[in-house]
Design a protein around this nucleic acid. Structure first.
Lengths: 218, 218
DNA sequence: TGTACATCAGTGAACGCGCGTTCACTGATGTAC
DNA sequence: TGTACATCAGTGAACGCGCGTTCACTGATGTAC
């Protein structure tokens, strides 16, 4: 109480763990969370089991994150970044938008949600999360859309962006159907017809422009 | 113990509540559940609050359903039936597939998930439910697909069914995006471009047939 | 008509459990002097 | 060199709470005779 604070020369402090230890722990928590959220849903994964899987006890969680919601945001962004990096490589290596589509509506992707696209696993659940989380989602969404848009034939970049959004929605929706359906053969058919649909959207000249949406709900 | 069972003439028993009372209660529970599951997600809605909203106490739940999962299945099926009935009317009254699409990717539908399509609210979550629940989902899915298929131009019914599946996936995925995104203007754009995409899929002659999906995950 | 009993939709207390979050503490490492 | 103290990543008990499910019970209504 009465003692004087140490001079703390040069503004940084040596640690009892090696440098970067805490950051490595944090990344480990995010990696575990990112996979399990996608596999089981955000609401079904508790902080305690998450920390145990990262080799820690649950009490330490709050020295890394202010709340579970903060982890949700960070884990979601991490997953989006990794997926985008992977997909970008596939596209840039000459596969273009067709490589993106075939890589997405794929049995391996369908059967490994924990390492796949966040949207197909969590989109409706994330829509019920706070605005801050949805804002982070939206920002990364724009990057994925920009990648797809790069490979669309339209001259107008606004049209390219719009089309890219609808393609991304088509990919996510069809993969969700393939995962939800109880008949494996049907699931495979859905993947195949989803590929056809997405390729159609990626190549067809623009359709008759719809008026701004309005009318009765369904 | 020693008394003889009543003759129970004609195999049915008069009730202390008016006839159909229990069935009405059951339908009320399903109606409440069906809306709240869609609004909040299955995992976020507890049996106790559900029963309270139906004007009952939670103890009586298990004289109506064997488990929460049974209610999930029944509420999901009920929602799908009601939605399909509504959409069928809109299509049959001359609107065809365009009425379905514009009714689906619509601000009113986006903003009222509790009375809208189950797929857009719960598809990834339902994919993690038991096979019995997913089988019930699949069965009703086929009916929705059959409705859409009725309005597609292809001669081959198998191609019509495949295309209808991909259109349904496109509708669900794009509505989910519109709901998740944090920017209202972007949300409206997504609805509009989703309409364009779905109309394209509903009218474009068949695209180059893709091989059966295989290859790397994304 | 009166009495004993059967039916059963709904009640409410209780079960064990996991949830997100808080907090006093440990113990390894560092600095000050 | 030795001692007192500061730092802080991680520990583990505890908080109040809601979860799905079970069960003995209530009380209104019916039947049997």
């Amino acid at each position: 109480m009465t003692s004087i604070m140490p001079s703390q020369s040069e503004g940084w402090i040596r640690m009892r763990y090696e440098k970067g230890h805490k950051d490595a722990t944090r990344k480990r928590i995010i990696a575990v969370a990112s996979q399990r959220f996608r596999e089981e849903g955000v609401g079904s994964v508790g902080v305690a089991t998450l920390m145990a899987e990262a080799g820690l006890t649950h009490g330490g969680f709050y020295s890394h994150f202010a709340s579970k919601e903060d982890l949700v945001r960070d884990a979601m962004v991490d997953a989006q970044d990794r997926t985008l990096e992977r997909v970008t490589q596939a596209a840039r290596q000459g596969g273009g938008v067709e490589a993106i589509i075939r890589g997405y509506l794929n049995p391996a992707h369908r059967d490994n949600p924990g390492h796949g696209c966040v949207l197909a696993c969590l989109l409706p659940e994330l829509a019920r999360h706070p605005a801050s989380t949805r804002a982070a989602l939206t920002e990364r969404l724009e990057r994925s859309v920009a990648l797809i848009a790069d490979y669309l034939p339209d001259a107008d970049p606004t049209i390219r962006r719009d089309r890219a959004f609808s393609i991304l929605g088509t990919l996510a929706g069809n993969l969700q159907l393939a995962r939800a359906v109880s008949d494996p053969a049907l699931s495979d058919r859905i993947l195949a017809s989803g590929i056809t649909a997405a390729l159609t959207l990626a190549t067809t000249p623009i359709a008759p422009s719809p008026e701004t949406a309005s009318g009765d709900p369904s």
